[in-house]
Computed example of a mutant assay.
Amino acid sequence: MSSRTAALAHSFVQFAVDAGVLRFGEFKTKAGRMSPYFFNAGLFSDGAKLGRLAEFYARRLIDSGIEFDMLFGPAYKGITLAAAVAVELARQGRNVPFAYNRKEAKDHGEGGVLVGAPVRGRVLIIDDVISAGTSVRESIAMIEAAGATPCAVAIALDRQEKATENGTDAPYSAVQWVEQRLGLRVCAIATLADLLEYLESQSDPQLGMHFARVAAYRDRYGV
């Protein structure tokens, strides 16, 4: 990771904490684990927060060197993210089209499940996190059905923890599964490692307490 990318990641973690999107406590994950932290991108719920989030995505994508022709946002959270990032990329001089899907096909008007620009070329999928890879698999199927090529996935936070398979811990994370099994590069603004570095650098003893708990969680479930 370059120093520029690391600085961006640490700034993003600070922003997520300040915005109340990244919280500490005791939270049950989809896998049934009790996590000492929780990231809820749905709480980027006003114009200023969403605009700043889009700026982080855009800067990370530009720094990544990933070549893409358009953005795709899987329903539901990805819809807002793709639209906001497209606006921010245009503001930074890179105007790209975007599209998203409906959960249910529309049987009137233009019909179909895809909305927005025609899905063509190299398509970058934008979502908040990858928990099980289901959303990515569904997005790939829709993109390929439209005759385009999924090229990468951009997410806000990589939890860097073991995926679950048939109720047991897998030797890989959901992000690693997408990269290795589906062949798509995953570009995250920040990771669990960045979160731990942030917590360790804080002088606030309350945050220091969270560091120990998050580190213990990583030791148990991390990849």
Rank of each mutant, 00 (worst) to 15 (best):
R4N: 14
A6T: 13
A7M: 07
A7N: 12
A7W: 00
A7S: 15
F12T: 07
F12M: 03
F12P: 05
V17M: 08
L22S: 01
R23S: 13
F27D: 03
F27H: 08
K28F: 03
K30S: 13
K30H: 08
R33N: 00
M34G: 01
M34H: 10
P36D: 06
N40W: 04
A41K: 00
G42Y: 02
G42Q: 03
L43A: 03
K49C: 02
K49Q: 11
A54R: 10
A54C: 09
E55N: 13
Y57M: 06
Y57K: 09
Y57S: 04
R59H: 14
R59I: 09
L61H: 08
D63A: 15
S64A: 10
I66T: 15
F68Q: 12
D69Y: 06
F72A: 05
K77Q: 02
G78V: 06
I79L: 13
T80F: 09
L81K: 07
A83G: 12
E88M: 14
E88F: 02
P97Y: 13
Y100K: 09
E104V: 09
G109P: 03
G109I: 12
E110V: 14
G111V: 04
V113R: 15
L114N: 02
V115S: 06
V115I: 12
A117F: 10
V119W: 08
V119K: 09
R120G: 01
G121W: 03
R122N: 15
L124R: 03
I125F: 05
I126Y: 04
I126M: 08
D127M: 05
D128L: 13
I130W: 06
T134I: 08
S139I: 10
S139Q: 08
I140N: 02
I140H: 02
A141V: 06
I143C: 11
G147N: 04
G147M: 05
V153S: 08
A154Q: 14
A156S: 15
R159Y: 09
E161H: 06
A163G: 06
A163N: 11
T164A: 03
E165Y: 10
E165V: 15
E165G: 00
A170S: 12
A170E: 05
Y172I: 10
W177S: 05
V178K: 00
V178D: 07
Q180H: 08
L184D: 06
L184C: 04
A190C: 15
L196K: 11
Y198P: 03
Y198I: 03
E200N: 10
E200I: 04
P205K: 13
M209L: 11
F211A: 14
Y221E: 00
Y221P: 00
Y221S: 00
G222P: 07
V223M: 00
